[in-house]
Amino acid sequence: MEKLSLNQRAAILSVVMLFVGLLAWEAAIPAQKAVKELTEYELLTGAGQPKAGVPPPSQVLAKAWEQLSNPFYDAGPNDKGIGIQIGYSIYRVLTGYFLAAFIAIPFGFLIGMSQVAYKSFNPFIQVLRPISPLAWMPLALFIIGDSEASAIFVIFICSIWPMLINTAFGVAAVREDWVNVARTHELGPIKTAFAVILPAAAPTIVTGMRISIGIAWLVIVAAEMLVGGTGIGYYVWNEWNNLDLTSVVFSILMIGVVGMLLDALFGLLQRRVTYAE
């Protein structure tokens, strides 16, 4: 054991925990009664049908294999592959998210540059920020009139705040020494913004972007449950209506995996812009 690195030891422990957890889960699910043990009366009243229950991991794995081996099939509105559903969700998340970034980052930059702007906008941001994005849904549906666009709007409104606040904060907190370096080198305001303030604030800005993408992915599931039609959130709710808990558990896991990948992507970006002082 002494020769193993820290990461190797952690990886072994992770695998062990996974294995033990799955075993415990498998053992905790009571087996269904076999059909032949039932009385005739029970059979007649439908008790022979498989009962809905939390599926054991073996069933979930079988489901995952089935779904992931053909993720993009399309057999009508209520039967689409998991890949298609996730694709819809990612499309909505990225559209709303990049719209938000497109507004929040330049606007946050301007707010951060001016103390007056920062202080005057702050109360509005503080009131709007804690509103659950789903609370906007009825208003969005009424004003926009389109459920697809409303879902994107909800993503937009939930991902704008962390990016706006972090950008403004990052820009406002740029060390004065660095701004002085720009000043003593006679850099104009545009050049100062791009050559000094942007790289100096980049780690904070990207942190905001990372928080936002996480929130957007949390919110899309709930939003799609409401608007329906397509997407991973709709899929979860649809399978719940079908009482197909195996699919529900499987899609929950998929939501987690995709969320992790999105976060890792921004983690990479963050590592690129981070600097040590």
């Binding site: 020494d177 002085n180 370096v181 000094v196 980049a202």
Partner: peptide, 9 residues
């Protein structure tokens, strides 16, 4: 400057 004021990135 005393604190060098180099741009760390």
């Amino acid at each position: 400057f005393q604190n060098y004021s180099l741009l760390p990135w």
